[in-house]
Computed example of a mutant assay.
Amino acid sequence: MGHGGDVIAELTSDHREVDELFARIERTVPGDAERKRLADRLTIELVRHSVAEEQYLYPAVRRHLSDGETLADKEIADHVRVEELLKALEGVDAGNLDFNHLIVKLRTEVYAHIKDEEGRLFVELRAACPQADLEELGEKVRTAKKVAPTRPHPGAPRTPPGNKLLAPGAGLVDRARDFVTGRGK
Score class of each variant (00 low, 15 high):
Asp116Asn: 14
Asp116Ile: 04
Glu117Val: 02
Glu118Lys: 13
Glu118Val: 05
Glu118Ser: 11
Arg120Ala: 06
Arg120Val: 07
Arg120Ile: 09
Leu121Met: 15
Phe122Tyr: 15
Phe122Ile: 00
Glu124Arg: 13
Glu124Lys: 14
Glu124Cys: 02
Leu125Ala: 10
Arg126Tyr: 01
Arg126Gln: 12
Arg126Phe: 02
Ala127Asn: 10
Ala127Leu: 07
Ala127Gln: 13
Ala128Trp: 00
Ala128Tyr: 06
Ala128Lys: 03
Ala128Asp: 00
Cys129Pro: 04
Cys129Arg: 06
Pro130Glu: 10
Gln131Asn: 01
Gln131Phe: 02
Gln131Pro: 03
Ala132Ile: 07
Ala132Val: 12
Ala132His: 12
Asp133Tyr: 08
Asp133Phe: 01
Leu134Ser: 05
Glu135Trp: 02
Glu135Gln: 11
Glu136Tyr: 01
Glu136Pro: 00
Glu136Ser: 15
Leu137Ser: 04
Leu137Asn: 03
Leu137Arg: 05
Gly138Tyr: 03
Gly138Asn: 10
Gly138Pro: 13
Glu139Tyr: 00
Glu139Ile: 02
Val141Gln: 09
Arg142Ser: 13
Arg142Val: 02
Thr143Lys: 14
Ala144Pro: 06
Ala144Val: 06
Ala144Cys: 04
Lys146Arg: 15
Lys146Ala: 15
Val147Phe: 10
Val147Arg: 09
Ala148Ser: 13
Ala148Tyr: 05
Ala148Asp: 07
Pro149Ala: 15
Thr150Gly: 12
Thr150Arg: 11
Arg151Lys: 13
Arg151Ala: 14
Arg151Met: 10
Arg151Asn: 05
Pro152Trp: 07
Pro154Arg: 13
Pro154His: 11
Gly155Asp: 15
Gly155Arg: 15
Ala156Cys: 04
Ala156Tyr: 05
Arg158Pro: 04
Thr159Arg: 15
Thr159Phe: 09
Thr159Lys: 14
Thr159Asn: 01
Pro160Phe: 07
Pro160Gln: 04
Pro160Arg: 12
Pro161Phe: 08
Gly162His: 10
Gly162Lys: 09
Asn163Glu: 11
Lys164Val: 04
Lys164Thr: 05
Leu165Arg: 07
Leu165Tyr: 00
Leu165Val: 14
Leu166Ala: 12
Ala167Tyr: 00
Ala167Asn: 11
Ala167Thr: 03
Pro168Trp: 05
Pro168Ser: 10
Gly169His: 06
Gly169Asn: 09
Gly169Phe: 13
Ala170Pro: 00
Ala170Leu: 15
Ala170Thr: 09
Gly171Phe: 00
Gly171Thr: 06
Leu172Ala: 14
Asp174Gln: 08
Asp174His: 06
Arg175Pro: 04
Arg175Tyr: 03
Ala176Asn: 02
Arg177Gln: 11
Asp178Thr: 04
Asp178Ser: 12
Asp178Asn: 15
Phe179Gly: 01
Val180Met: 13
Val180Arg: 13
